[in-house]
Design a protein around this nucleic acid. Structure first.
Length: 730
DNA sequence: GACCTGCTGCGGAATG
């Protein structure tokens, strides 16, 4: 290890000494050789604050220390805030080597950008969108300024993995290598992340054409201790008018107790709940005549408010608790907090891991509290409530996090058609004109859109021609059409993702409210809105309106309208916990219980209902006039079964991964599932044909119908696994 | 009870 350190530039070693570091961390030593050699991609997977950034920059800066001209390192970040943090953190090291660092994003100073334009050198910190804008507007400059580029490094790589934006980034990097004439001798890519699921598949996601090998570096000896507690709360069925104390208020009382006087993060999952909890806690400060120390933090708040709070957390002068959404999940520099609290079930194991990593000061234990409220049971409680699925999901996620060290992997079955269309326009805008076959080679054959067939690519080009996005010249070259010029000329072009559109929910002549549509909505589907049940009658994509009628039915379940997609593995862990009647984690010959008395009682109720309904053996349950289907699969499979039933004339809704089929009987549903399992089943794209609103990504409006169905089907449905599950009825 | 991210270049007014 000591020898490794000797390979670094003398000034870098001096800097390490100045930091007072007696030696490098394991991942930092391990990264030196592969990064200096610059012959492979490198994946550095280590927990938050384990020194990943330094593991890359110490050797990479050493390697470009003597390079006077030309940018040597291109650092890519998903957030502008992270670029500003990184700029600050690199200051002392870059000063010592007299190496310029240029932050380059929409809000970074024009003066620094101009300086880089005239004398490109050192390190550039950029977002994917700003890199796109440089390629389109100034490819000539990029070609000369980056001609000696040695490394590309991607921070928080999991934030890109599997998403439209991640695919955009891969395409940008491929186009950059193409522009620089480096397809034969690729520029090494280094990816940094704390939470990567199925890590052995990540190299393929970092470089789909595999033109360089990839070295994986993980921190093995980091045995960070974790203290976890799950606390249960019961929302009374009858609230006392004299003294109305519901579960949410009790949760706030406990938050006040845990958090006051220290620095904490409270993740509340929705902006609305974030505001309510922060306001309740501020009121409590008022009542006790103490200064307020609870503040909300989410994406709708102004930059000034957010940055003010981040600074306050970082300085540690005043006790501060941020009640936040995922905005404080990524590595924005707020230092470490005393503890993290999760109110309501987390969306994914990977995001739970990110959140947990925010706590653990001075090498101490990470502390995670999870506060889960369930409704008190009454005789007409819904089976989903009786199963306490929010609590069970939370317990399952903690087990996967701690004992399996499992995180959700990227979904590699997606096509990313919207992003391909964006890239077709971007490449044409960059080059002025290009032949269709060259474009196909660049983006699909050698680039990241390898899932897309030549036939689909051709259909997209023809459709783009018919809507005047592009035109073909007599020479055969493709150039921008009238509409294409307009779209690529506007600054809003550079991002491939869009903010989901709000649909109006209309019943009769009355507007009930608005709902952002980014998940599956089918005619005939039941949804819950404003605490009531509705059936979807029609969807008008042009008017952005969903027409609904009141639906009869018992009390709607509290947990799990549609939301973020839950993975198969999580649902299977939930089934295992309920089947075993035990959620505790085995450590050596002991079983660790991490639930409080209330949570244990809620779990006991859940298991009692699970056993009484014989859900270990049976997938179907009759409850009044409704039938519940338990697949214990992820949302893609559940969506598929629900859509098949709706196609066959049933009314159904999906809540917390359970399908609720209305006004029917168990024998009827069982017969239908049996006939579904025996019939030739449709493809995902055919099933998607029946979905009215499936143009959800930014450039979907310019894609031909059949391509839309193919892309949407792959995103929302899983025919293979759904059919496997249906087989048990044949 | 529904998460988050990003984007140009120019014209004109205000400030030192």
């Amino acid at each position: 290890m000591r020898d490794e350190h000797e390979k670094l530039d003398i000034r870098v070693r001096r800097w390490i000494f100045q930091q007072g570091w007696s030696e490098l961390r394991e991942i930092q030593s391990l990264a030196i050789e592969p990064i200096l050699s610059a012959k492979t991609d490198v994946l550095i997977s280590a927990s938050t604050a384990a020194g990943k950034t330094e593991a890359f920059f110490l050797p990479a800066i050493s390697a470009i220390a003597e390079q006077q001209k030309g940018v040597g390192i291109l650092y890519i970040s998903p957030l502008k805030a992270l670029i500003n943090d990184q700029d600050r953190r690199l200051e002392s090291l870059s000063d010592l080597l007299d190496m310029p660092v240029t932050p380059w994003h929409g809000d970074s100073p024009q003066g620094k950008k101009n300086k880089l334009k005239t004398s490109p050198a050192g390190i550039v910190l950029i977002t994917p969108e700003s890199l796109e804008s440089l390629l389109i507007r100034d490819a000539g400059w990029v070609k000369s300024a980056f001609s000696l580029l040695r490394y590309v490094v991607i921070d928080e790589f999991h934030a890109f993995l599997g998403s439209e934006r991640g695919h955009h980034l891969l395409s940008l990097l491929h186009r950059l290598e193409h522009l620089l004439g480096r397809l034969k001798s690729p520029i090494p890519r280094v990816a940094l992340s704390a939470t990567l699921g199925e890590i052995e598949k990540v190299p393929l996601a970092l470089r789909p054409n595999q033109s360089l090998p990839c070295k994986i570096i993980r921190d093995t000896n980091a045995v960070s201790t974790l203290k976890v507690q799950v606390k249960g709360y019961v929302n009374p069925a009858q609230v006392d008018i004299e003294e109305p104390i519901d579960a949410e208020y009790k949760i706030c009382q406990d938050l006040f107790k845990f958090c006051r006087g220290g620095n904490h993060l409270v993740f509340a999952n929705s902006r609305n709940r974030t505001e309510i909890i922060a306001a309740t806690l501020s009121d409590m400060c008022d009542q006790q005549h103490v200064p307020n120390e609870f503040f909300p933090h989410h994406g709708s708040l102004s930059k000034e408010l957010r940055e003010g709070l981040e600074k306050r957390l970082q300085q540690e002068h005043y006790p501060t608790t941020a009640v936040c959404t995922m905005t404080l999940e990524l590595g924005i520099d707020i230092g470490k907090v005393n503890s993290v609290v999760q109110v309501t079930a987390p969306h994914s194991v990977s995001s739970l891991r990110q959140r947990m990593g925010r706590s653990g000061r001075r090498g101490g234990a990470s502390i995670l509290r999870m506060l889960i409220a369930e409704d008190e049971l009454t005789k007409d409680s819904n089976p989903i409530d009786k199963l306490r699925l929010e609590l069970i999901q939370s317990l399952a996620m903690i087990r996967l996090l701690i004992s399996s060290k499992w995180y959700e992997p990227a979904d590699t079955s997606l096509y990313h058609f919207s992003t391909l269309l964006h890239q077709i326009l971007a490449v044409i805008a960059q080059w002025g004109g290009i032949r269709a076959d060259q474009l196909y080679n660049l983006l699909c054959k050698e680039g990241p859109f390898q899932n897309i067939s030549a036939a689909d690519y051709k259909a997209i080009l023809l459709h783009m021609g018919s809507s005047e996005l592009i035109t073909q010249l007599g020479s055969g070259e493709l150039v921008l059409g009238v509409l294409g010029e307009r779209i690529t000329g506007h600054y809003s072009f550079y991002a491939v993702f869009k903010t989901p559109e709000e649909f109006r929910i209309v019943s009769g002549t009355k507007t009930l409210g608005t709902l952002p549509i980014d998940s599956l909505v089918l005619v005939g589907q039941h949804i819950i809105f404003g605490g009531k049940r509705w059936i979807v009658k029609d969807i008008d994509s042009d008017k952005k309106t969903i027409y609904v009628e009141r639906a009869k039915g018992g009390k709607p379940p509290k947990f799990g309208g549609s939301g973020m997609s839950v993975h198969d593995v999580v649902r299977q862990e939930m089934f295992k916990i309920l089947s075993d009647g035990d959620y505790r984690i085995a450590v050596a010959d002991q079983k660790i219980d991490f639930a409080d008395a209330n949570a244990r009682e809620l779990f006991r109720e859940s298991v009692a209902f699970f056993n009484e309904a014989e859900l270990r053996q049976n997938s179907l349950l009759q409850h009044g006039n409704d039938v519940y289907i338990f697949t214990w699969h992820g949302d893609k499979v559940v969506n598929t079964i629900a859509a098949l039933l709706i196609m066959n004339g049933y009314e159904a809704g999906v809540y917390a991964g359970v399908i609720e089929v209305s006004k029917t009987s168990l024998t009827d549903v069982a017969a239908s599932l049996r006939s579904l399992s025996l019939r030739a089943y449709p493809t995902a794209a055919e099933l998607a044909d029946s979905v009215l609103e499936k143009r959800v990504d930014k450039f979907d409006e310019f894609l031909p119908e059949e391509v839309i169905s193919l892309g949407y089907g792959a995103k929302v449905f899983d025919m293979n696994d759904a059919h496997c599950w249906l087989k048990k009825f044949s």
